[in-house]
């Protein structure tokens, strides 16, 4: 719906990818692992491979969870934009279709040290 206004009302989005100096935003969250209060925000180059992103920034941020060491990345279930998804670890984020502000989620059934899953 349009904004109700006296004149035509249009605007420029504040967080366009062009504002990030060649990088993009990616969000990630580990389902049922709420020691981390909210999904993480990453600002990374789209050329980064998926495996670099997992082994680097993602692994580093989830380390505080007692389940972190037990994560087997080859059997993790992935979602992108809330849909089941299979990433290509060797491909870049761009090649994987991970666009600016995409939300990636992952699930590790059976790992639930801090949270009983109903």
């Amino acid at each position: 719906m349009a904004v109700i206004a006296l004149k035509e009302y249009s605007a420029v989005p504040r967080d366009l990818v062009a504002n990030f100096n060649g990088k993009q935003l990616v969000y990630a969250s580990w389902d049922h692992h709420l020691l981390f209060a909210a999904p993480f925000l990453f600002c990374v180059p789209p050329q980064m491979t998926f495996s670099e992103w997992v082994a680097g920034p993602l692994t580093q941020l989830i380390a505080a969870d007692p389940d972190a060491k037990a994560v087997d990345w080859s059997s993790v279930q992935w979602l992108k934009a809330n849909q089941p998804w299979t990433p290509n670890f060797a491909g870049s984020l761009a090649e994987n279709g991970v666009v600016h502000k995409d939300q990636i989620r992952f699930r590790t059934p059976g790992l639930n040290s801090l949270l009983t899953v109903n």
Binding site: M1, A2, V3, I4, Y9, S10, A11, V12, P13, R14, D15, N19, F20, N21, K23, L25, L41, C43
Partner: peptide, 21 residues
């Protein structure tokens, strides 16, 4: 948001801003 998207796409969100100029 859906009722007035053009208003909220301008939101100055502190976290994404931190990575911009």
């Amino acid at each position: 948001f859906e009722n007035e998207p053009e208003k909220y796409i301008q939101a100055w969100l502190p976290m994404p801003q931190l990575f911009q100029e």
